[in-house]
Design a protein around this nucleic acid. Sequence first.
DNA 1: TGCCAGGCATCTA
DNA 2: TAGATGCATGGC
Length: 280
Amino acid sequence: MADFANTPLALPAKGMNLEQTLFCGQSFSWQRREDGCFAGVAAGHPLLLRQQGDTLLLTLPGGGSFTAEELAFWRHYFALDADYAALQARFSKHKKLAACVACFPGIRVLRQPFFETLLAFIISQNNHIPRITGIVQRLCAGFGRQLAPGLYDFPTPQQLAGLTPQALAPLRAGFRAGYLIDAAQKVAQGVVREDELRGLDNAQAREVLMRIKGVGPKVADCVLLFALEREDVAPMDVWMKRAMTSLFPRGMPAACKGKEGIAQQYIFFWAREHLPPSGK
DNA sequence: TGCCAGGCATCTA
DNA sequence: TAGATGCATGGC
């Protein structure tokens, strides 16, 4: 609360629901604090965040003013430039997508840093959100720089590349520890490069990502979607099958309760790429 | 106490 | 090449 003694920077939320967006399972870097604010770090930028109606209140831990670069970073991270009203209007013309919008109208797809997203989704396999979050938080606290009290940067590929699975034992990531190290090594060595991935088509980028142990089609697609903002990541039927399996296990919109995360994200991306733009 | 989880690697037929 | 199985851990 003391941090909010500084005058926060107010940004229009444009319909975003922070609670839904930060904890739906697309990011594992945010904490809910007792005073009602959210604290997190992305790409080395620590932030305290609060929602008041349709306004986001941003504060730097420890005070100070946002630089233009930081402000641009967070606008991009929260996709505040995206026209979700138009997107949702398009979704609402599709029966099942309309149900998704009705269930979770405030979820936005964050644009997250590449390495953080890669490791988070490696951790996510055969796992669930509370535990994924715990592993990510322990990874940052154990191997990342402290940026503010209780807030740690995500460790760099170089920091993790030289470690052993035994060194990662405190994370309690299980069999995924070796996958994390392999990913860190391949990124640190340039076997997998973000700038190269951005220049490849989806099939090629997926193939490069799947050179990493523990990265299969699902994890690769998630990295392409959430970190690289790629279009048309997977065939329509694949995404819809994944989404519907998660969101509509019995074919009923009511079943979406508690399944906000991945299903909503899949559907948003599927719809964005496969529904015709409004007016067409 | 046992099942299951937002997959993937490995083994086997 | 497809299907079956094991994997670590913690929530429910």
